[in-house]
Amino acid sequence: MSKGTGGTLSVMWQGITRSPSGFTGMCLVAAILIFVFGGRFLVDHHNPTDADAIWKPMSGAHWLGTNFEGKDTFTKLVLGGAEPIWVGALAAVVTVIIAVVLGALAGYLRGRFDDLVLQLTDITMTMPFITVLIIIASYFREISPWMVGLIIGLLTWPFLTRSIRAQVLSLKEREFIEAAQLQNLGTMRIVFVDILPNMAGYIFINFIIAVTNAIYAIVGLYLLGLLPSTAENWGLMIQQAWQNSAYLLPRALPFLLAPLAMIALFQVGLVLMTRSLEQALNPRLRDR
């Protein structure tokens, strides 16, 4: 089993580093992570409101100008990335855990449990995701971004659950699983130790996809003005810029376009990574 996952890891690594677009994606993601999590230690967190410096253009003192309150845009850009990325990661962890546990057990056990899981995925998939998220977000007025991440995770697991279930259905017919069953190794051990590691790469790809979906949702909630406006967050910057019609003012553009570009580039980087990972893990695609 350890050999299996080690093999997957090296295949994945090669897939990313050998494909130019996958490598670009990885560099983009790494650069943004360093910018966000390294930059925190280099900028002055105290970013005062300055009524005399509203919407200042780019300059040596303010690399990206200032915003509608006279705050330094570059500082806000550095500090605003951590939250969406953490929330995205949290939501993805929740989604993947639920999907892996439910999907694997449903596919392996079949019967009543399987029916129940399928019914649950049907219902959850059908609920209009953004609408339900909006209702919940306005339900808790002072909802914390962490809660939002948790809720996003609780609403987005069905797709992955289905495909993991389908894969377990076919994996459990293989000989090595039959061998494990004959040894009476126990359901939990067979599912989580013998079956799931075979899907490690696939699960990892879906983790990344889940991160992009969660970032889409949390930035969207900020854009709709449904989350508390106290935090430093790229989504909030875009919302404030849009509300203040910053797009009409050329010198205010950095406050709108800089966070927009960061989110877009991060998403693009993640998606490029998944595409080349998919190719590396799927021989059918690789040979073509």
Binding site: S21, V219, I238, Y247, L248, L260, A264, Q267, V268
Partner: peptide, 26 residues
């Protein structure tokens, strides 16, 4: 393929904002 991956990755509302900003002000 690259263009398709990039377009598919950018959230639709950011595309709308970018269209408006680039089209009108820039």
């Amino acid at each position: 393929s690259l263009i398709a991956s990039v377009m598919g990755a950018i959230p639709n509302y950011l595309i709308a904002i970018a269209l408006v900003t680039l089209g009108s002000t820039v």
